[in-house]
Amino acid sequence: MSENTGTQRIPMAKAINLGLRRSMERDDKVLLMGEDIGRLGGVFRVTDGLQKDFGTTRVVDTPLAESGIIGTAIGLALAGYRPVCEIQFDGFIFPAYDQITTQLAKLHYRSRGRVELPVVIRVPYGGGIGAVEHHSESPEALFAHTAGLRLVSPANPADAFTMIQQAIASPDPVLFLEPKARYWDKADVDVTAADQVLDLGGGNGLHRARVVRPGTDLTIAAYGPTVATAMAAATVAEQEGHSVEVIDLRSISPIDFDTIADSVRRTHRLVVAHEAPVFFGAGAEIAARITEQCFYSLEAPVLRVGGFHAPYPVANIEEDYLPNLDRVLHAVDAVLAH
């Protein structure tokens, strides 16, 4: 197949599709399950064509029951399979919350390592697409609080291609948070099948943050949908004479604090941006840890930019809820003013 090798300019949704395909080719225990993922190819078409090529026992259109999807995925994992579940939208994950946090996250621990739960839960998350309610949420903090789960979120097609394969190879359950507003952003991706990407601990590891733009005056840490916003803010700041470093965290559990701390020790200033509400969010954890670790390097308090403590608003005002370019720049200015 021509699509098996070389560099292609593809959107993130296609990159995930190819990553799923690679994983399914590599390991016949990998199977996909979810609502509308088979014949339809998923509401975002991320699984397009996979049922046709891998059959209905490996790409399963499930009953419309999220707890049932995750609960049966647990059973399949206990039977030796590697289920990749799609939750259709972020706001639909909560019927499965009990199975994820009470069962999936804890069974390895409860069994003292005797069973493994290599289950991936793919969740299109975040806003900015003008959707109706329950279709634009960022629930990552609710899951990051639960030991036993791993949480990652790619910000670009190349990472999406690699990270989905790493997540599937992980022996632990992984929430794979897909920034739905970035599904159609295109970039060059080397889609050559490469087993070395499965090295979780290396420099390209699943949980390693990456400095995506070096700078000297201030660091913006972001993940998923807000990485592009942070990059845009850095470009604007540069025009105003400020050198901004941008870190793509890539992983929310665990968080690569070392990479953030290294950066802050050089730039002395930190802004964290995410779409999720800032209250008890990932930014709060980062602010606390960086303050503990880098107190004497900081020239200003760590500021967070994110959602408010209100339900995700109606689509016509969502731009004011989201940490858009203006709000990130507002925080950058405030931190630089110290």
């Binding site: 199977l31 609960g71 049966t72 059973g75 039977a79």
Partner: peptide, 17 residues
Amino acid sequence: GSHALHATGFAMGVQRD
């Protein structure tokens, strides 16, 4: 009741085996 789903998923694995 949580494990009723695990049993069902396990049985789906038995089918695939």
